[in-house]
Structure formats: structure tokens, C-alpha cells
Design a binder for these strands. Sequence first.
DNA 1: AATTATTTTTAGACATATCTAAAAATAATT
DNA 2: AATTATTTTTAGATATGTCTAAAAATAATT
Lengths: 228, 228
Amino acid sequence: MLYNQCDMFTSSEENYLKAIYHLSSLTEKGVSTNAIAKKLDTKASSVTDMVKKLADKNVLIYQKYQGVNLTIEGKKIAAVIIRKHRLWEVFLVEKLNFNWDEVHDVAEQLEHIKSPKLIDEIDALLGFPTVDPHGDPIPNKEGDITIRKKVKLSALKENEETVLLAVKDSSDNFLRYLNKKKIAIGNTIKVINIEPFDNSVLVQINDIELLITNEVAENLLVKESHTI
Amino acid sequence: MLYNQCDMFTSSEENYLKAIYHLSSLTEKGVSTNAIAKKLDTKASSVTDMVKKLADKNVLIYQKYQGVNLTIEGKKIAAVIIRKHRLWEVFLVEKLNFNWDEVHDVAEQLEHIKSPKLIDEIDALLGFPTVDPHGDPIPNKEGDITIRKKVKLSALKENEETVLLAVKDSSDNFLRYLNKKKIAIGNTIKVINIEPFDNSVLVQINDIELLITNEVAENLLVKESHTI
DNA sequence: AATTATTTTTAGACATATCTAAAAATAATT
DNA sequence: AATTATTTTTAGATATGTCTAAAAATAATT
Ligand SMILES: [Mn+2]
Ligand SMILES: [Mn+2]
Ligand SMILES: [Mn+2]
Ligand SMILES: [Mn+2]
């Protein structure tokens, strides 16, 4: 059965490719059925079915019980969907007055719109951005990503100064916490003091001293520091 | 079976509602199964199935062999989808450099995006437009449409002057014909001469005299004329 | 009014994407 | 190494949306 050999994928197939792409960066081995199921909030049996179909389409390699690995082609398709997702997120924030904690669900829908011209024009309208509102890099049209070196704020030492580049956790709750504390991408952050007992950090952001827990510091990705 | 009583419709259901809405304006009686099938490029049997489902959801009235009629609720839902379609078309033309003959297929996809905030912000970004790139009116949030009085150019008499408000036929071929002849919405059109033999019309548009066939004149909708 | 043609509906099938429950394979413990 | 636990796959079912072919209802002709 070799019908439908055109490079068209359903929204569901695209979501699987994207999920597997993201999970691949977390492990050396193949991505497990269970991990995919958890990420997509579905059942392992559904994943097995879909994974077989995607293997038939040559976008991933599947071996029973051994998890899956994307092919070059599969990686490219996934990256292009991620490109669309992140460009739409920038659009929503820059042009439509969305907050960074409101964009994800809409971008999940918009990323599946099929139009050769649409996303290129959005890209141009936005001035060819390189990162999305959460600081995540935007792949180019070929699916290549340039990764900026980032470290967790929790890895810094006292008196080090840096810039907030991205958030590790993009959940609505965490983003809204940052809104409340007026912490935003691009802010300069200086580590004033680290409390040895619970690893909470006293930082200076926007000329204001602020105490953040270690959990927060673990989820803020900053430019590799240079002591001043 | 009363599950899923929330006002959420699938893309397919939305397409049926939209098709029926458009077909309703062409007939006094109920919209026939065959007409819907033709419009949506599907089979009559598929229409019967879907129409039963939509009747269960109270968005239309269905009586075997008698065609369907939208309920108030159904009309509103259809109008809101048409609103989204037309706002996206304006967006594509005004903000993303699309030509008016390139927007329809993308708008067919974008109209199904679910987001309370998205379409309102697009509306605001565009300055609350009242017509789409083809001159068709944009319903408001409640689904109300203000219809401008329009007449076919072919109904005008010699020496009458008017303004092009909309096109009746929005097919790519017709729109590209208009592009080629530099005829655009808003242009002033004066009827110079009507040839009795074939009803072809010599018009003046943009200070240029141009001969158009009756078929073209039938598809150009203009402001009701006043002899000058 | 009876026949013919057209439209519409029903019956049954198929593709996609999902699920539950049970079986099989792999991994972890004793 | 044998047992137990976990993960993964298979088998079979369900929901959506579509199709074809045949039956039923309606409309048009003779
Ligand atoms: Mn996102
Ligand atoms: Mn993001
Ligand atoms: Mn359109
Ligand atoms: Mn239009």
C-alpha cells in the first residue's frame, strides 16, 4: 500500500512528529511509545498505530519495543512545524496584543495551516525574528536551528550579571508568575546572594531586588555569565 | 444521546453551515440535499448524514425530502464563520501582500481557528473593515450583516456613471481577468456604449476605454447609478 | 392516471484516529 | 535464574466523515 506518497501530513501526524522531535533532544536512544503518549495525552496503543503509519511514510524509523527515531526528512518536517508555531507566537504578541502566556494554544492550531506563501509573509512582516516570545529559537525554512548557548540562572554564582534569554518552563502558571514579578526576556539579572539552605536566590532585576526560589532559578535560562 | 451539547463545531460541520447559509439566500424553500452536495463537492448521502447530525444540534430544521433551513442559532454560527473568513481575507491582502485571487483557499483554513481573542484583534488591527477584498460585507460579532444596495453593471444604461462595489463571481479566473484589465474595487466606471447585438459594453475605467462582454458586466456589482 | 426520471434516503462499507482490555516482550527484583 | 513489574503491542470496539449501490419518495412526462 503506497498510496498518498505526497508530502502532506494530517494535523495529527504533524503533532506526533513535533512531539517526537522535542522528545528526541532529551534522550540518546529511541523515543519511547509511553513518552509520546504522555506528551500527546493519548494512549500507548494509539501511539503504536500512528508510529507504524509514520514509518511507512519514511519520516521515522520504528522497531518494535525499541522506540522511534526521526529520519532526516522527519526532522525537517517537524522543524518546519515548530518554525510555524513560533512565528505565529511572535505574531500574536507583536501584532495582536497577546501576552506570552496566551499564545500557545492558538499557535497549536495555526501551525497546521497549509500555505506556501502565508508563513513567509508573516516572517517578513515580523522582520525575520530569530526567537519566539519564550526565547526559543525559530528554525529557518530548511528546518535548521541555530542554538544559542544558555545556562540556568541557578548555575550562576554571587555577583554574576547576565541577561534573561529564555524560559525553560513555558507553562501558563510560570509565565504568569513572571508577569507578576515583572520579569521579562531581555532583562538584565544580577545575582546578589544565594541562600545555601534552600538555594533561593536574591537577584536584582530592573533595579529592584527580588527573592526567587531555586525552582524559579532552574527555569530561567540566561546568557553564560561573566563576573563583573 | 445528548453528549457534546457545548457550542463547538467541527470544521466539517462549520463548512456545511456556511454552505447552507449561502445557498439559503438563493431560494425561498429549504436548501436541497443535492445543492449542498454540489457546493461542498461531496455526495448527497453524505449530506443526509451530516444534516441529521446538525438537526440534532438545533442549528437547522430538517424534514425528509424537504430540504433544510437554518435556525436563528445556525444562521448566527454561519455568519460568524463568514465573518472570520472575510476578515482573514482582508488581513491577507492588506498586511501580507496577497492578491485578491490568492486569499480564498487560505481563508477557508483560517476561518476554523478557534480563539475568542484572535479574530477581534485581527479586526482591530485592520481598522474594523466592513467589506472583504471582493466587496462582500463582513458580518459583525453578532452575525448581523448590513447589505449595501448593489446592481449589476449590465443593468446600467448608456452614459451612466457608477462605482465598482463588489464582484459576483469570485473565481480565480475572473479575478485574474480583472487584474489583467486593471479593474479594481472602488474604481469609477462609466458606460459609454452598449452593443445591442451581444450586449457587450464599452466602459471607461481609470480614464481608459475598455470593451467588456455581457458576461463580465453581469459579474460586476456597482453602486445604483445616477445619470450624469 | 400511469409511467418515467430525478432526487433523496437507507444500508452497508471503508479510512482515520482514537479507546479498552488482554497478550507479549522487556526490564527490574528477588 | 526465576519471579515480578513495567512497557509495548495486538485485538477488537467506537466515533467521525466519507463513499457506493440499492431502495424509496418526489417530480416530471406521457
Ligand atoms: Mn508554544
Ligand atoms: Mn514558544
Ligand atoms: Mn473567500
Ligand atoms: Mn471574499
